[in-house]
Structures are given as C-alpha cells and as structure tokens.
Design a protein around this nucleic acid. Structure first.
Lengths: 238, 238
DNA sequence: TATGAAATATTATAATACAATTGAAGGGAA
DNA sequence: TTCCCTTCAATTGTATTATAATATTTCATA
C-alpha cells in the first residue's frame, strides 16, 4: 500500500480498494474479501476497514450485508462524478474511448454553460473569465508559459459564471477531462496566438451577453479537439 | 430520528445529518457537533457516528481533522450528482430556482444524448426507446394510465442509448429532475396525444440515425417545459 | 514582545465482545 | 422425492474501552 502519510488509514485503503475495484482486480465471481480478510491483507483494524468500506459504499462502488458480505455494485451505480472515482477510472483505463466520452460531455456542457454565462453571468464572474483570458495571453507570449493551466482556468471560470450549481459542480470533471485531453492530443504548437484568439472571441460574446454566439463559439472550440480524437480513433481501428 | 428499520444506524444518521447540513441547520459559525456530541444527540456509539461521518465526507459535505473537529465543506464541494445529496437538497429547497437549474442541465444533456443515440445507439438500445414509447402511447390512451412514469422511461432509455457512461450515469439525476418538474408544471391536460407524438418524432429521428434532427427535436421537447418555468419565475418576481 | 514548551480537546486507530441478519445445510413429514 | 421447518454458521452491525496522533490554546520564560 502506497504510504501517503498525510492521509488517514481508512482513506488510504479507500484509495487502494477503489482503484482495484475499478480496474477489475476484484470481482464478484472470485468473491470480494470479507472485512476480516481485508484486515489481514492490509494489516489494520476492522474499524478502519469498515470506514473505508463505508466510503466506497457512499460512492456507489460496493454494498454490504450481513452474512452476504461485501459485493461490488454494477458499474452503472458507480458515481463517476466523484473526483476519486473519476481518478481511479482514468488510472485504470486512459483509453481513447474514455477521452471521447469526456469530450462528448464537454460538448454537451460547455456550450450551454457559455450561453448561461452570457445570459446570467454577474460582472464579477465575467471579470474572472477575463482574468483567465489575460493569463492565457501572457502564457502564450512567454516561452515556457503554462498555457494549458491558464486554459483550464478559462473553462472553469465559465462554468462558474453559469450561475448554476450543477454546471459549476462539474469544474473538477472538466478539469480532469481537459488534462486527459492534453495528454493525448499532440499539441499543434505555433498556434498559441490562434488559440488565445478563439478564446478571446468566446469571452467577448459572453461579456456582450450574446447568448447564441457564446454557445456557437464554444461548440467550435471543443469541436476542434473532438475532430482530432475521432481521427485518432479511426486511425487506431483501421 | 426517523426510524427506518431497514437501514443501518450509520445510514440513518447519514441521512439525518445530510439533510440538516444542506438545509442549513448546522453551520460552521455555530460550530458543528463533535463526534462525542453526536453520540449523545442520537444515542448511539462512536463507531456508528464515525461511519456516518465518513460517508458524508465521501459525498463532499464535511471533513474532519484531529483537534479541529468536523467542519462543513463549502457547498461547491458538495457532490450534487450523488443521489442522496440531490434528494436532501430537494427536500430542503424545492424552489423554482432549483427547477430551472435542473432544466438547464437537461437542456445541455438530453439533446446531446439523443444525438449520440442516433449516431452510436445499438439496435437493442433503440428497441428499448421504442418500447418506452409504446408504454407512453398505452398510458396516454388509458384513462388513468401513468404517462409520467412512461415518460421517464423514455428519457432514461435515450441516455442509456448514448453509449456514454457519463450520460447514462445521469439517469437518476434526470429522473429526479423530471419528477420535480412534474410537481410544478400544471399538466396541460388533453394534450396527451400531442406529447406522445412529439416523443414519437424523437424516436423516429434516433432510429433513422438522423443526428441533427434527433438533437433539435429533443431541444424542442425540453424548451416547452423551460418556457413554462421561466414564465412562472417571471410571474413570481413581479 | 516573542519563543517555545506543556496542557488539552478532538479525531484516528485498535482490540474485543456481543447482537442481528441471512444464506445454507439438515431433518422430518406429506 | 419434495416441501417446509429448524438449526447452524458466517458475516456484518453496534457498542465499549483504551491508547495514539494531531493541532490548538495556554502559559511560562527569555
């Protein structure tokens, strides 16, 4: 077990088990270990094991009943919008398929968020988007500026500006999606200015309250990434 | 404490505390009770209290550290895509605002899901949509048929057919959204046939693989509900 | 005042005991 | 045999107690 001493024992075990469940190391055919077995396996008390089990149950990964033991829930019950679950899933299968699923979600969420930001965004929220944009511009002009990080800020600022809890809750989700995205898409270097310019257009549309335009421009932004992925998937299949 | 004897003690306490946290009965100013205090308050052992606390922590509602005690996390950390959290939130504030937020999410998710279903849906998935549609038709023609339930099935079948885990994971979310929606929107009775017909069009578009049309028709479906809500909100404000 | 050490309150972990639940095995009767 | 009932056993559920770890507060000292 990876000893992250800044984490509780139960948190550590939660992590280990979560990863193992999601990557398929455990399954209900071979049988999931009982509490007692987990105690032995990790050399810890039942108290901690139970706390870990409860946390995993809270995330939808497992359930447990007397005499029946601990069972892995069907994957459709897993809460993929939980940051940990998401991380565990990506650790186990960072495939192009997952990346495409991410992009499809971004395609649904972000244009709508941009539209809402244009419609309802407060001055403060929109100022944050502007600040993120400045960060992108600065990073694009500096030799080793972290454009990617600034990009993340821009997109999350828009989610925040939507004024809708369900959208802004997806900040971590989108961050993760963008991070994975970056690892796959070969960065078309040299086009930094173009990237910033496209984001700038989105910002303008939002700050002007141009709902439809904000949405369309965001669609355009994501569509580019989507195209790259679809091509890669096609290349792999053939 | 509501004694739901089919639930664990820790589950019961999780429920009680979850609700109380979300409706604001507890807050960090007045101070959140310590484990010992919770034991007294609910008359249970520390074991159960701790398990409940861990579950709430897993859902992002609280965190706890030695000497510092249990603290409520910022609402932006709360995992609203967790079924329990969602239920607790609705129990505390079933306002029009929440309903609008729900609809905005549906507006983002469902048209895209319909598009994906049209593009990638398997025969089996699409057959399920068709079956749900038949259910709607039957319910619409029967005097006291449950059209609403059949409607739910239709929409969740589309999410399933998207072939994207992140979309199909939102089935419970959308179900809840639809349920709340029904409670608010005065059912424009007499138009049952029209409703079924509109859903039928969506089904046709999906089964024919007509991506754009599927998306647009779904937008239309949700937009109607959205309009009703927006009007209600305006009426309330004035 | 600033620094550091000690006291303290709270969570973190462990060990143990017993209760509750439920699936399976076994035994008796139709 | 087949069905139903009882008994048994394995596993989780709950409680109690004790100790460790941690971080805040207090207080003494330079």
């Amino acid at each position: 077990m990876a000893r992250l001493t800044n984490l509780n024992l139960s948190d550590q075990v939660t992590n280990e088990l979560g990863k193992a469940i999601i990557d398929g190391s455990y399954n209900n055919e071979t049988g999931f270990p009982s509490e007692a077995q987990l105690c032995e396996e990790y050399g810890i008390s039942r108290t901690s094991v139970r706390e870990a089990v409860k946390m995993l149950a809270a995330k939808g990964l497992i359930s447990s009943k007397p005499r029946q033991g601990i069972r892995i829930e069907l994957p459709e019950k897993w809460n993929f919008y939980d940051t940990n679950v998401l991380t565990w899933m990506l650790a186990s299968s960072p495939s192009l398929t997952v990346l495409r699923e991410f992009l499809q979600m971004r395609f649904a969420i972000e244009p709508q968020a941009a539209a809402l930001a244009a419609k309802y965004g407060t001055k403060e929220d929109i100022a944050e988007i502007g600040k993120a944009l400045e960060g992108m511009r600065a990073a694009a002009q500096t030799p080793d500026g972290d454009l990617h990080k600034a990009d993340l800020e821009f997109h999350t600022a828009i989610l925040q500006a939507s004024g809708n809890r369900f959208f802004s809750q997806l900040k971590d989700f989108i961050r993760t999606a963008l991070n994975v995205s970056i690892q796959h898409t070969t960065p078309a270097k040299g086009s930094n200015e173009a990237i910033v310019e496209e984001h700038h257009k989105v910002y303008i549309a939002i700050s002007e309250g141009n709902v439809e335009r904000a949405k369309n421009l965001m669609v355009y932004l994501i569509d580019e990434a989507m195209t790259v992925i679809e091509d890669e998937i096609k290349a792999q299949e053939s």
